[in-house]
Design a protein around this nucleic acid. Structure first.
Lengths: 112, 112
DNA sequence: CATATATACATTGTTATACTATGTACTTTG
DNA sequence: CAAAGTACATAGTATAACAATGTATATATG
């Protein structure tokens, strides 16, 4: 069946898209912790990010200095690592937005 | 610099996007050969597909029976391999379109 | 006429990233 | 007290874009 093809295709489309989405959520300046981000993104976009995808992704973004992180102790339960965007991250996300916009316009041109 | 980040990001975004674009070009029923596809897509979308990307991509699409190919001898020059879409390809591309549309709506929601 | 450029297909090796599976550890709920 | 939820993390696998390289023909240019 080509169900399988579609499934694999969606996984490929997510490559790149996820970092863009995460940076956009953080863009406003509010800090999020990982588990929260997954749920927030699922709520807004219906896109499900596996934990095994998100945590390495956040580390990559941090290595590239687009976000920073900070451990915050909780009154009860496990400490949370809060992520927030850096100035360089904001700068980068606006360039990404521009590319995405052009890409979608191209796709619209070609799909109709 | 984050020029490098953007560059790598664009390469990742193309994963999945390129197969979608190629199938959309073929969707109308007209047959294209590889070299022609690259130029056609560059002209319409400004997206540059490397030859080392396109030919393996076309083989994958063929393996998945979304397209078929046919060698056509030329009066002069190198024979061309013409690709055309299959019914299954048309079916698949419309599912892809649906997903893409939803994805872009999600992104729009999150970027504003 | 030799060389560069364009046409046309193809493969190999490298790199990046999503996902599954698995693991740790604490808390809440039935 | 077991199950489900919260919260972080890593290892291994699969996939795909791209650079580099190779083959071969045709045409333009100095």
């Amino acid at each position: 069946m080509n169900e399988d093809f579609i499934h694999k295709w969606i996984s490929q489309v997510k490559k790149g898209t996820l970092s863009f989405i995460v940076l956009n959520v953080l863009k406003g300046g509010k800090a999020y912790y990982g588990y929260d981000l997954i749920n927030e993104i699922k709520k807004i976009t219906e896109i499900e990010i596996a934990e095994g995808t998100l945590y390495p992704l956040m580390n990559r973004l941090k290595d590239d200095k687009l976000i920073r992180s900070e451990w915050v102790e909780q009154e009860s339960g496990i400490p949370r690592k809060y992520y927030s965007i850096t100035p360089e991250g904001k700068n980068t996300v606006s360039k990404m937005e521009e590319y995405w916009h052009n890409l979608n316009n191209s796709v619209l041109k070609i799909t109709k």
